[in-house]
Simulated scan of single mutants.
Amino acid sequence: MDLQELAGLVTARRAAAGRPIVVGISGYGGSGKSTLARELVEALPDAVRMRGDDFLDPVRVHERSADWDGVERDRLATEVLRPFREGVPGEFRRFDWDLGRFRDPEPVPRADVLVVDLIGLFHPETLPLLDLTVWCEVDLDTAVQRGMLRDRRAGHDHDRVWTDVWAANERDFESAFGPREVADVRFPTG
């Protein structure tokens, strides 16, 4: 599958649903989720992106957990996914990583398609709110290497966190929830 085929699938899902839809893009950290989300939004006529990093707890996301506990799925579902799908007004707050705090509330965007890219997204708490699930298909070692390189380029040395925490969290989450297997689409990003 390529980007145009994926965009066509999203368009067909939107037409069949008869309401705004949510496309969830997940994969390992460093797998290309954000890049794919941006490209997909550009390829669709009325789509917006919700950055998954805005829904990470700044402390817990750096700790070991079997279910990516640092991903604030409940906040994402309550503040964004449900209001968006139901077409009702809502507000959410982004976590500002540069300032180290939440920003002021802002309205949930309105569009035909909301694209959310996030680690640990394909979880029983959020799966029912995703109309199409896309897994970024790349092996964990490659994703980790990409993520470490990206962070180094941005001036961050997270190598230990990548190898000791995040890669381990990915393996545990995969064992518990099988995100690759529950995805509607496996999109090659390797």
Rank of each mutant, 00 (worst) to 15 (best):
H158D: 14
L114C: 12
V165Y: 04
R152P: 01
A168R: 15
G27K: 09
P107T: 03
A7E: 09
T189V: 08
Y28Q: 12
D96C: 05
E79M: 02
R13H: 08
L56C: 10
G8F: 04
D141E: 15
H158M: 13
R152L: 14
W162V: 08
P45C: 08
K33V: 07
G155D: 11
L76K: 00
S65L: 05
L81P: 00
A37T: 12
A168H: 14
E63N: 02
A43I: 07
P179C: 03
E91G: 04
H123A: 03
R75D: 01
L132I: 04
V113W: 02
S175G: 14
R49S: 13
R103T: 12
R180W: 09
A43T: 09
T133V: 07
A143V: 07
T126M: 03
E137C: 04
R171K: 15
A168M: 08
D112P: 00
G178I: 00
P20D: 09
W97H: 14
L149I: 11
E72K: 02
E72V: 00
G178W: 05
D117H: 12
E91A: 13
P107A: 09
W97L: 05
R13C: 04
V22E: 05
A168T: 14
H123V: 02
R38W: 06
T142H: 01
R110V: 15
A37K: 12
L130Y: 06
V144F: 00
V161Y: 13
P179K: 07
L118Q: 14
R160G: 08
D159L: 13
G190I: 02
V59R: 10
L9Q: 11
H62E: 06
Q4T: 15
V48S: 08
G27E: 10
A16E: 12
R38D: 09
D139R: 09
V108L: 06
G155E: 13
W162G: 02
N169L: 10
P45S: 11
G147K: 01
V138S: 03
G178S: 14
G29F: 09
S34C: 07
G52P: 10
T78I: 01
T11G: 11
V23R: 06
L99C: 03
D98V: 13
L118P: 06
G52D: 03
P105H: 00
F102D: 05
A7D: 09
L44H: 11
L56I: 06
V144M: 13
I119G: 10
R13A: 01
V116R: 13
R153I: 10
V161A: 14
E91L: 10
V22N: 08
E181I: 04
L118N: 08
W97S: 07
L129Q: 05
R186W: 11
F84R: 07
E72F: 00
M148V: 14
A176P: 04
E125H: 11
N169S: 10
V41H: 12
V10Y: 02
C136R: 04
R93F: 00
P107G: 05
L9F: 00
D117V: 15
A37G: 13
G52R: 08
